[in-house]
Structure formats: structure tokens, C-alpha cells
Design a protein around this nucleic acid. Structure first.
Length: 623
DNA sequence: GTAGGGTTAG
């Protein structure tokens, strides 16, 4: 705190001791203690109004940074006849704290003193219920609101809309929304946020388009709603509308837009957005900076991600973790570990997601021993209990390195019940290392565990195919058909001049599909000369009976690659984002394309990056 | 006689 805020307190407290103003460069707390002491000596503390100002000051500072909630609570306990203002201040303070249930304590107490809650009390009481996620308390609070006749107060209605939406009770939320007499920006925005929260972006957008005036929070909620519900293109699109309406975005909006570009793998678009941030002088806070690191990492530009990270004005554990995860995705295990030790050296405490990133780096780099050391240090040095996902990393680590028996033993001996992703990691490893024996056991466990999950049938079936057990492949297909399990459609994205092109398998909808298919045929001719023999194992499972021939050659990433080669200058790199894991046939084909066409191809699949160059892939066929 | 409010991001 500085002298001027100290003077502000004194002014509001109606104290006029100029000596106190000299006390600069003290902490807020010591300032407060001095003023408090002064008030005790002068008996001003017995003036409920003065005392309440002091408490309100504590609460206000609590909402900003340093927590003076305890101090406020102690002050409160020394006041003989606290008034409603003081109760409201405390309810407000606790509603934004880690322990919101304490609000209820003050609420009950004020009623016992025959005070009546007012229009200020309820928004914060409702906020506490929302924070706690307590439907029971929320319903009760709603009852009190009606009992005290505040059901038509817009502020209170808005907080109820928000509460019910947070509870996932969108019906209750909209019931209240439709009964608000004079809807304000917050009413609309809260309802839009509610629809977004439950995944109904369509209804959210309808309200968004209908509302009379929007503020930045409204834009932000709609854009982040799209981003959180995986409608990344729509998020970017809406940001462009925002720009065309001459609205200047803030940090929050930019984080959602950047994260959308990151998920799309849209480098060009992402760079433009980054440029917007710089041009518009948007404050580079922790979250925004981290989002940018994530952007470049996910767009395949890991060097740029490192540069942005190095230039960040501030970094926390999450910014470091984001970079480490990015390096891991690219298979840069050594550098990931270097950044990890540097992070520890700066005195930041790694979080459990930091270990997920570090362990996945070890796994992609085949660093088994190192991984185990880090896994052990997690609990020993940082007191972090490994969670399921960390065990998953270890299974992956052992499995990828070919230590399948050890991996299986690890799964059986882990202290918690292995879930599907853990078994899935083991099955994936069995496929890579063609171990049908363990694979079959694991595959059966998985199918029992999640009979509706298509991925496991596909993995198991691919495994049988690679082990030449064709009857089993046929059985798997039969089971899938009987159960109606469908493979989710694979798609590949490629950005061209800031526009995203989306290809799905066998897609005919692209306006230039004919040329693209011709291009692929030409590619096929050339890579065949270089030794491509087409698919043997994985794709066999993917083909439909009718389209045996073409299906294999119409995998979405092949279409995207053909489009990329067609549309870009010779030798310029091609970036592609896939929603599924790259299949073995596409992997082989892409390696050859990188050699024959002298192109760098950067493919992000759901697991990691593959940098294809000169006929080889950065994953060392180890994916 | 007096002050105080609801919605957004890695």
C-alpha cells in the first residue's frame, strides 16, 4: 500500500491525523494495524460506522490481492452491535474466498439478531451457493429470496440465473431469465454463459444475436463458449465479427481466440492474432502469455514457442508446464527435461500436470530410467501423490520402450484400479511391438470395460492384423457390427491463406475435390516408384466392403496433403492437424512424400507431432 | 445520515 491509499482510508474513516500519512512503504496489514490502534486509542472503534469502514476496507483488499479476511473477521468479533452493512461485507468477502460456506454462518447470525437481509445480501449469498456447488443451499437461498420479497430484483435474478446454470439446471435458469422484467446486459450474458456451459452453443448464439446491446464480457463469453465446446472455427469467426464492429478486445477474449487457433493448428491465423495483441497494446498477463506459448507449440512451431516463452514478462508453473508439454509433443525429450530442471532452479514448485508433461517427454524419448527417477521424486521431493494419469504415463513409457511384460506387471501392481486409458496405453504398446499375446488379454479387458468405445476394437483388430490373425480380425468386425460400434470419423485440417480446410475420409464435399484426387493419384504414382506398396495391416480394418480400393487412399490426411502440395509453393512446409492417431499406412506414405517431393510435413495427431523430412519421421516410427 | 452488488481466460 502507498501513502495515498492510506490517506484514503483515513479520509473515509474521518480521521485527520497527518502523521499517519508519513508511513509509506509499509504493507497493507501494518498500515491497517496502525489505523486500528489509533481508532482504539481514540475510541472511534466504538462508532459502528467507522468500524464498518475499516472492515469494508479489509474485504475490498481481500477481493484484490492480499487476504485480510481473517483480520476483518477478528475486527467483527470485537464489535458489539454489528449492523447489516458489516454482515453484508463479510458475506461478500467469504463468497469470493476459498471457504464460501462461512457466508452462511454470518447469514444465520444476522437473522438471529433480528436484522433483515437486503438486496445486497442475496447476490453474495447466492454466489456462495454457486461457488460451493450446493444445490440444497441454493434452493434454500432461493426460498429466502422469495420470502423476503426480492424475487424481482434484477441483480438477484441474475445471480440466480448464474447459479442454476452452474448447477447444470438450465431449465431453472431460463425459467428465471424469462421472468426478468427489465433484462440488462448481465441477464443476457449470464443466460448465454449458462447455455454455453451446458454445451448448447446454438441457443447461446441465438440469445447473443437477439440481445440489444453487448459488452466485452458478452463477446468474451460467447467466444470462449465456442472454444470450450470445440467450435474453434466459430470462435475465430466471431472474433472477426467483433473486429468488424470496431470493438477492441481485451486479454480474456484474446486467450479464447488464441486457444482456438492453437487447437486448429492454424499458424498463420495465430500469428495474425498475436500481431493484434501487440498492435492493440493488450496487456501480456500470465494467462495470455501461456496461451501464446501453447499456440506456437500446437501449431508445430516449437522454436517460436520457446522464443515467446523466453520473452514473457512473467512466468508461473503453468507457463513452464505448457512449454515442457509442447516440447514433449514434439519429441524433444532432452530439452523438455532441461527446462524442467531450470524451472525447479527458479524456485517454482512443479504441479502434478508438470509431471504429466515431463513423464510424457520421457516416454516419447524412450528414457525409461530417467522417467522412473522422476516418477519416484514426485512423491519423495514434492509430496505429490501420483494420480491415474501419471501411472498411465509410466505404462506408456515402459510399453513404448518395448518392456511389455514389465508394463503389464506395473498395471497389475499399481495401488489404484487401472482405468480404460491405462489399459489403452498398454494395448497401444502391444500393437507397436506386435505382441498379440498380452494385447489380446488387454483388449478383452478393455472391451468389457468400455464396450461402446470404438478405439479399442480398432486397436485390437489392428493388432490381430499385424500378427496375421485374420480370423480374429473378422470376428472383431463382426462384433462391432453387431453392437453398432462405429469408428468416429477421422478428419484432417489444413490452413491455407488463413482459411481452414477440413477433410474427412472419402470426403467429396470440397469444391476442388476432383483436382485433389487427381493430385493424390499423381503422388501415389511417384511414391510407388520410391517403394510404397500400400497398406497391409491397419487400413484393412478401416475399409468398407464396397470401397476396398479407394478407402485406403482417401484417408483424410492424404487428401489434406494432396491439397497442400497442390496449393503451396515448392519446398514450403505443409502443416496438418488430425483428430485421431495417424495410421501406419499414412505414416509410411507421408515419409516417402517428404522425400520424393522434398517437403517438410508437420503433422499433429491426437498424441504428438510428426515432423516428416527427407523420408524419415521425428517419432522414429515409435508412435 | 452514512457505504456495498451479478457475468469472462492457460
Amino acid at each position: 500500500m502507498n501513502g495515498s491509499s492510506s490517506s484514503l482510508i483515513l479520509k473515509t474513516l474521518k480521521l485527520k491525523n497527518p502523521k499517519l500519512l508519513l508511513l509509506e512503504s509499509c504493507s497493507t496489514l501494518s498500515h491497517l494495524k496502525i489505523i486500528h490502534g489509533h481508532m482504539i486509542r481514540t475510541h472511534i472503534i466504538f462508532d459502528v460506522f467507522a468500524a464498518s469502514r475499516l472492515i469494508a476496507f479489509c474485504i475490498d483488499s481481500t477481493l484484490k490481492t492480499s487476504s485480510l479476511l481473517d483480520y476483518a473477521t477478528r475486527l467483527f468479533s470485537q464489535i458489539e452491535n454489528p449492523n447489516l452493512f458489516i454482515y453484508n461485507a463479510l458475506i461478500r468477502g467469504y463468497s469470493a474466498s476459498e471457504i464460501p460456506h462461512k457466508s452462511f454462518h454470518f447469514y444465520t447470525q444476522l437473522q438471529r439478531l433480528d436484522l433483515f437481509p437486503d438486496n445486497i445480501t442475496f447476490p453474495f449469498l447466492v454466489k456462495s451457493c454457486t461457488q460451493l456447488g450446493s444445490v440444497a443451499m441454493g434452493t434454500q437461498a432461493h426460498g429466502h429470496i422469495i420470502k423476503h420479497g426480492f424475487q424481482l430484483d434484477v441483480y438477484i435474478q441474475n445471480s440466480l440465473v448464474h447459479m442454476y446454470a452452474t448447477f447444470g439446471d438450465i431449465k431453472a435458469a431460463s425459467h428465471i431469465f424469462h421472468r426478468i422484467n427489465r433484462l440488462d446486459v448481465v441477464s443476457w450474458t449470464s443466460m448465454i454463459a449458462g447455455y454455453n456451459k451446458c454445451g448448447d452453443v446454438h441457443s447461446a448464439r441465438q440469445l447473443f444475436d437477439r440481445m440489444p446491446e453487448k459488452n466485452l464480457v458478452t463477446w468474451s463469453i460467447m467466444i470462449s463458449g465456442y472454444a470450450r465446446n470445440n467450435h474453434f472455427e466459430k470462435a475465430v469467426e466471431l472474433f472477426q465479427v467483433l473486429q468488424s464492429e470496431g470493438v477492441r478486445a481485451n486479454e480474456t477474449v484474446m486467450v479464447s481466440v488464441i486457444s482456438s487457433c492453437a487447437h486448429l493448428g492454424a499458424l498463420e491465423l495465430g500469428e495474425k492474432v498475436h500481431d493484434y495483441v501487440v498492435r492493440n497494446n493488450i496487456t501480456m498477463n500470465l494467462i495470455l502469455g501461456t496461451a501464446l506459448v501453447d499456440l506456437y507449440a500446437r501449431c508445430g512451431s516449437i522454436e517460436k514457442a520457446i522464443r515467446v516463452f523466453e520473452e514473457l514478462p512473467e512466468r508461473d508453473a503453468l507457463s513452464w508446464t505448457t512449454l515442457i508439454a509442447g516440447l514433449a509433443m514434439h519429441g524433444y525429450a532432452k530439452r523438455a527435461l532441461e527446462y524442467f530442471s531450470e524451472m525447479v532452479k527458479t524456485g517454482l514448485t512443479p504441479r502434478d500436470i508438470t509431471f504429466t508433461a515431463v513423464l510424457s517427454a520421457c516416454s516419447h524419448g524412450g528414457m525409461v530410467e530417467r522417467g522412473f527417477k522422476i516418477f519416484e521424486s514426485m512423491k519423495r521431493d514434492y509430496g505429490l501423490e501420483p494420480r491415474l494419469e501419471h501411472y498411465g504415463c509410466m505404462v506408456d513409457l515402459l510399453g513404448r520402450a518395448g518392456k511389455l511384460a514389465e508394463a503389464e506387471k506395473f498395471v497389475h501392481e499399481m495401488p489404484m484400479k487401472p482405468n480404460a486409458p491405462i489399459w489403452g496405453a498398454l494395448l497401444g504398446a502391444c500393437r507397436i511391438h506386435k505382441n498379440a499375446e498380452i494385447g489380446e488379454k488387454v483388449g478383452k479387458i478393455l472391451i468389457q470395460l468400455q464396450p461402446e468405445h470404438s478405439g479399442y476394437y480398432v486397436l485390437l483388430s489392428n493388432l490381430y492384423a499385424r500378427a496375421n490373425k485374420w480370423e480374429n480380425v473378422a470376428t472383431m468386425r463382426k462384433i462391432m457390427r453387431e453392437k453398432g460400434v462405429k469408428k468416429p470419423p477421422g478428419y484432417s485440417l489444413i490452413e491455407m491463406d488463413g482459411k481452414i480446410h477440413n477433410f474427412t475420409m472419402g470426403d467429396k464435399t470440397h469444391p476442388e475435390i476432383k483436382k485433389i484426387e487427381e493430385m493424390w493419384d499423381e503422388i501415389l504414382r511417384k511414391i510407388r516408384l520410391a517403394g510404397y506398396t500400400g497398406n497391409t495391416a491397419d487400413a484393412l480394418f478401416d475399409i468398407d466392403e464396397e470401397e476396398k480400393e479407394s478407402a485406403l487412399n482417401r484417408h483424410s490426411e492424404k487428401l489434406a496433403i494432396a491439397f497442400g502440395i497442390m496449393k503451396t509453393k515448392a519446398r514450403s512446409p505443409i502443416r496438418i492437424v488430425k483428430n485421431l492417431r495417424v495410421c501406419e499406412d499414412c505414416h509410411t506414405a507421408t515419409k516417402l512424400i517428404s522425400k520424393v517431393f522434398e517437403r517438410e510435413l508437420i503433422v499433429r495427431d491426437r498424441n504428438r507431432f510428426h515432423h516428416f523430412k527427407g523420408g524419415a519421421c521425428s517419432c522414429i516410427d515409435f508412435w
